[in-house]
Amino acid sequence: MIRPTLLICSLLLSQSASAEEVQLAVAANFTAPMRKIAAEFEKDSGHKARLMFGATGKFYAQISNGAPFEVLLSADDETPARLERDGLAVAGSRFTYATGRLVLWSAREGYVDDKGDVLKKGDFRHLSIANPKTAPYGAAAIQTLSKLGLLPALEPRFVQGENIAQTHSFIVSGNAELGFIALSQVFRDGRLGSGSAWIVPANLHEPIRQDAVLLAKGQSNPAAAALLKYLKGDKARSIIKSFGYEL
Rank of each mutant, 00 (worst) to 15 (best):
D114E: 15
V90S: 02
L83F: 04
G57E: 03
A67I: 00
D76S: 04
D114P: 04
G57M: 03
R82H: 10
E70S: 06
D77W: 01
L83Q: 05
T96N: 12
A67S: 12
S93D: 05
S93Y: 09
D77N: 10
L83T: 08
G87S: 10
W105T: 11
G57A: 05
F59S: 09
P68A: 15
V71N: 10
Y97L: 03
E84C: 05
D76C: 00
R85Q: 14
V90L: 09
V90Q: 07
G110Y: 14
R94C: 01
R101I: 03
L104S: 06
N65T: 11
T96E: 13
R82F: 07
R94Y: 07
R94D: 10
Y111V: 10
A75G: 15
F59W: 06
E109L: 12
P68M: 15
I63E: 04
L72P: 08
A91Y: 09
V103T: 14
E109D: 15
D113K: 12
S64D: 09
T99V: 12
D77R: 06
G66Y: 12
G57Q: 00
G87T: 06
F95R: 07
E78I: 04
R82L: 12
Y111L: 14
A81Y: 01
F69H: 12
A107G: 14
A107C: 07
K58N: 13
P68H: 14
D117F: 13
A107H: 15
Y60K: 15
E84A: 10
V103Y: 10
W105Y: 13
V90A: 01
D86R: 09
D77H: 08
E109W: 11
L104G: 04
G57K: 01
L102S: 12
A81I: 01
G100H: 07
L102M: 11
T79G: 03
L72F: 05
G87E: 02
R82W: 05
R94H: 13
K58Q: 13
V71D: 11
E70P: 11
T96A: 14
I63A: 08
S74P: 10
G92S: 10
T99A: 11
E78G: 01
E109G: 06
L104W: 08
A107L: 06
L104R: 07
A75D: 10
D113C: 14
T99L: 02
E109A: 14
F59H: 08
L102Y: 12
L73T: 03
D76A: 02
S93M: 11
E84W: 00
D113P: 11
A75K: 01
A81T: 04
